[in-house]
């Protein structure tokens, strides 16, 4: 059982994600985005399952435009998996849960 999905922004992205000791899965989302809302519950569920070994975070692209620009994000939801400050892999869109599972398996 994890501690919930962490909200990150342009200011704390480096300290919370890039310099984190654990790998992190960041959900780039926005409140007006339907597909982002659809996958929200699945990400919470995965946090409950894997939250001990992976940080689950979300970054609102509306409030924090710099971080998505840095990773060339041009569609949401985009989920990026980070480890040791580097991008391991990413998926775009409301992909099936099996794709989310295989994504996190890459760092487990």
């Amino acid at each position: 059982m994890g501690t919930g999905v962490l909200d990150v922004d342009d200011n704390n992205f480096e300290s919370e994600i890039l310099k984190a000791e654990k790998p992190a899965l960041v959900d780039f989302w926005a409140p007006w985005c339907g597909p982002c809302k659809a996958i929200g519950p699945a990400i919470q569920e995965m946090e409950e399952k894997y939250g001990d070994s992976i940080i689950f975070a979300r970054c609102n692209v509306d409030d924090s435009p710099n971080t998505p620009a840095q990773y060339s994000i041009r569609a949401i939801p985009t989920l990026i998996l980070f480890q040791d400050g580097k991008v391991v892999d990413q998926v775009v869109g409301a992909v099936p849960k099996t794709s989310l599972e295989s994504l996190v398996q890459k760092v487990l």
Binding site: C33, G34, P68, S72, R74, A75, I76, V92, G93
Partner: peptide, 17 residues
């Protein structure tokens, strides 16, 4: 090229363009 310029949701992604 999904997420690299191909989008299926104007309402979600217009702001990136």
């Amino acid at each position: 090229l999904v997420g690299r310029g191909v989008s299926y949701c104007v309402d979600c992604d217009a702001n990136f363009f």
